[in-house]
């Protein structure tokens, strides 16, 4: 039975779609059959980040409305056979996400996959609520700044009260924190919250810390999930986070400012 994982945050621009892509890709790299679904109807981005925008014919809304079947809409990733992308509609809006339709699609997907990663839109309105409603597990993407932390806190509260598991009095949605765009140098200068600050306020387990990295922008511009770039710090951080998600113990990395060696400065390498 597949596990439904929602990537959510409340706040926009914190790295949800980047995380959904990297997280799903890392799960696929670990041998799990994984599909990543774009719930951001009307602001379709996941297909760009996954580099499959030119292969989209049918989408999530078509399948919800019964205009296409699942296999017509699912796009298999060219780099990893375990990874599928389920794009959304750019022309519709969030109201097209009918809860019964989503439920039906998810139950079909559950038979075919190990992990269903849901990329939530920002906000706490219908789209975001629908994305988290069926979740078994949630990854809370948070930047080390107060407004992001507050919005994350709000979303954790909503998961605890408005998810299907909450409504049915089942075991609560498993909630984990992923700290993204973390810049140890700026944290050291007091310009960003520390890992401890964020953990203290949200008091949920920390899955990983993704350092602010040029590799993320480079990856999204080239349509590659950053976890496919094992050379980059961000890519390795996502692989670590997914390993922890799967129950492995791994030491936290990228929490202290990187020392730029004399030679690196000399040759101008970051």
């Amino acid at each position: 039975m597949a596990k439904v994982v929602v990537i959510t945050s409340g706040k926009g621009g914190v790295g949800k779609t980047t995380t959904a892509a990297a997280f799903a890709a890392a799960l696929a790299l670990r041998g799990h059959r994984t599909v990543v679904i774009d719930f951001d109807v009307g602001l379709r981005n996941l297909d760009l980040i996954m580099g499959c925008e030119r292969r989209v014919v049918f989408d999530f809304i078509n399948v919800i409305n019964g205009d296409a079947n699942l296999n017509q809409a699912l796009i298999r990733d060219k780099r990893n056979d375990n990874l599928f992308i389920f794009p959304t509609s750019q022309t519709r809006d969030k109201n097209a996400l009918k809860r019964e339709g989503v439920e039906r699609v998810l139950s079909e997907l559950r038979d075919q996959f190990d992990y269903i990663v849901c990329d939530s839109p920002a906000g706490i309105e219908h789209g975001a609520i629908t994305a988290l409603y069926f979740a078994d597990s949630a990854v809370i993407v948070t930047n080390p700044e107060v407004s992001s932390v507050r919005d994350s806190d709000r979303i954790i509260g909503i998961l605890a009260s408005r998810s299907r598991r909450a409504e049915r009095n089942e075991a609560p949605v498993e909630v984990n924190l992923l700290l993204t765009r973390y810049d140890p140098a700026r944290v050291a200068k007091g310009e960003m919250l520390t890992v401890e600050d964020v953990k203290e306020i949200l008091s949920i387990p920390l899955l990983g810390i993704i350092p602010e990295s040029e590799a993320v922008l480079r990856a999204s511009n080239t349509g590659t999930p950053v976890s496919f770039d094992a050379e980059s710090a961000a890519g390795r951080a996502y692989l670590d986070a997914v390993a922890r998600f799967l129950g492995e113990q791994r030491e936290m990395r990228f929490t202290t400012p990187e020392r730029r060696s004399f030679l690196r400065v000399l040759f101008g390498r970051a």
């Binding site: 507050r150 919005d151 806190d153 509260g157 909503i158 008091s203």
Partner: peptide, 21 residues
């Protein structure tokens, strides 16, 4: 959590976990 409201009607309220901003 942020956005949650708890009301102890006619009684005392005891909270043993953090109350978020």
């Amino acid at each position: 959590r942020s956005g949650v409201q708890i009301y102890a009607r006619g009684t005392d309220l005891v909270v043993t976990a953090p109350v978020s901003p």
